[in-house]
């Protein structure tokens, strides 16, 4: 019991790790702030493509989505970070993470937005168009708000997944929270910094997870 406390919940080591881990948290939040809006926009574009009447656009969008849903994000990230330099494209860890997560998140956001768009009855579009609204106006003011409302729990749980995903950035030595915690662990040979990082993830994401469960129950009833 003492050993577990000593090895996993060592307050002294956690206190020592705290400044570095908090700095890492800043990077984690920065990645999220860049990657979530980018992924949502890319996903929306791909979703609109996947419900397009143009066959070429539709199939390209679906192929894009399926390809990046089949490829593990870490494989993508390592390919970009360690593979592309062989083609003379050398990206900084941050740029590599942004590009990799953008492609990965877009695919997941696209599937959610697509389901949302398909859940809005066609009569809504007809009503809007019959009042003289353009296709774009109809999308912005009528279809999209309803689509987002219908898939809000899925959108939120995708945001949770993205926050968790940022931990992969540690593999390409981007100094986010897990990277910072791992660094202190390797210096102290003690797992407490990892527990500390885990605790912060929990603090960050638990409210969101409860909120999602709440929404899902409300929709089910």
């Amino acid at each position: 019991m003492d050993a577990i406390l000593q090895q996993f919940f060592n307050i002294e080591i956690m206190a020592k790790a705290m400044p570095l881990v908090l700095k890492g948290l800043g990077m984690t939040l920065l990645i999220c702030a860049v990657v979530i809006p980018l992924g949502a926009l890319g996903g929306l574009a791909a979703a609109l493509g996947s419900v397009s009447h143009n066959r070429l656009i539709r199939w390209s969008a679906i192929a894009f989505v399926d390809l990046f849903r089949a490829l593990p994000p870490l494989v993508l990230l390592i390919f970009i970070y360690a593979g592309l330099p062989f083609a003379g494209i050398r990206l900084s860890p941050f740029a590599a993470v942004t590009l990799g997560f953008f492609l990965n998140n877009s695919a997941y956001f696209a599937e959610i937005f697509r389901a949302g768009l398909l859940s809005v009855p066609v009569g809504q579009t007809e009503a809007a168009r019959s009042t003289g609204m353009t296709a774009t106006q109809t999308l912005i003011w009528v279809t999209l708000p309803q689509a987002v409302r219908n898939v809000l729990p899925d959108l939120l749980s995708n945001v949770v997944e993205i926050v968790k995903l940022t931990s992969l950035a540690s593999v390409v030595s981007l100094g986010e929270m897990l990277h910072a915690a791992g660094l202190v662990r390797s210096l102290t040979y003690n797992a407490s910094p990892l527990v500390l990082a885990g605790g912060i993830y929990l603090l960050l994401l638990w409210p969101l997870i409860r909120l999602i469960s709440h929404f899902e129950r409300r929709i089910a009833s």
């Binding site: 009503a127 009042t131 003289g132 309803q146």
Partner: peptide, 20 residues
């Protein structure tokens, strides 16, 4: 078309009010 449709009001069987 959008200009013309302003001059043609339409009422649907299923109302099609915007629920949001």
């Amino acid at each position: 078309l959008n200009k013309m449709r302003q001059r043609i009001g339409m009422v649907f069987q299923s109302f099609n009010l915007y629920p949001h």
